[in-house]
């Protein structure tokens, strides 16, 4: 069995956990998927829980850290199936409220939802949820790649969940999934980012926003974690990246 769980932060009352449950294994162009869970004082915030196919495994793994009835929020960075495909299952098994960009609220019924009382829609500028002196912040990341897209920053663990930003196409790892040589890792980032991200202008807007945050780890939805200096290197790289509309001529 693969190592499908890694505790990224734990101070006794606050935990940040990474899971790696993949729903399908394509031999080539393998896009590994990470799910995350924050447990703050026995209350859970689940991040991008993924597709229906991994629901059983993931919910079992989550239960080891927090009872399902104590999951208070489920954050969906955007509308993609690898992010939101299991909304129905989670709505059945938890009392959680779903946090998602207001752009996707009207599509919720297609995922099995008519109860808007259980949806907290995020305005474009995002929002903050405070707990004590600390907070969880939903940082705008629009068009990177989804037009209604958010990253999540946890001020206590100093972990930035970046969604599809920082996604890498890498073979499945048995060991701890983190970048150990950024220069070498670039090639795993390039293809995905050039095609999926909106434009350099949008990348810069996001970087200039998150640069102000005190970050220990950047945790993407796909691929490997960026820790310490590698997080800085990644932000520098993204700032200079030409992508999306910058490369229009390649699309037409």
């Amino acid at each position: 069995m693969q190592n499908q769980e890694k505790i990224l932060f734990d101070n006794g009352t606050h935990k940040f956990i990474m899971f790696s449950f993949d729903d399908e294994t394509h031999e080539d162009s393998y896009l590994s998927v990470n799910q995350y869970l924050i447990v703050q004082n026995n209350m859970g915030v689940l991040i991008d829980p993924g597709s229906e196919a991994i629901f059983d495994e993931l919910s079992e793994a989550v239960t080891k850290h927090v009872a399902l009835e104590n999951i208070k929020y489920i954050f969906l960075s955007h509308q993609d199936p690898d992010v939101s495909g299991s909304i129905t299952q989670w709505s059945v098994t938890t009392p959680a409220k779903f946090i998602i960009s207001s752009l996707w609220v009207r599509f919720m019924s297609h995922y099995g939802f008519l109860d808007m009382g259980r949806i907290m829609s995020l305005p474009d500028h995002g929002a903050k949820i405070h707990f004590g002196e600390n907070y969880i912040q939903f940082v705008p990341a629009h068009f990177l790649h989804s037009p209604g897209n958010f990253s999540l920053y946890d001020s206590l663990s100093k972990i930035l969940f970046s969604g599809d930003i920082g996604a890498a196409i890498v073979p499945a790892h048995d060991e701890y999934k983190h970048v150990d040589n950024f220069e070498k890792h670039k090639k795993n980032l390039e293809g995905f980012h050039k095609r999926y991200m909106g434009s350099n202008k949008l990348c810069r807007a996001w970087v200039s926003h998150v640069e102000k945050l005190d970050i220990n780890i950047i945790a993407p939805q796909h691929g490997l974690l960026f820790e310490g200096g590698d997080a800085q290197l990644f932000l520098e790289w993204l700032k200079e990246l030409e992508c999306g509309s910058d490369l229009l001529s390649e699309l037409y």
């Binding site: 229906e52 059983d56 079992e60 129905t88 299952q89 059945v92 019924s109 099995g112 008519l114």
Partner: peptide, 19 residues
């Protein structure tokens, strides 16, 4: 707990059906 999965699937499916 082993019996839960089938029930969750049923409720989720039924929820979509009702929608």
């Amino acid at each position: 707990l082993a019996q839960k999965s089938a029930l969750v699937k049923y409720i989720a499916k039924r929820q979509m059906e009702l929608i």
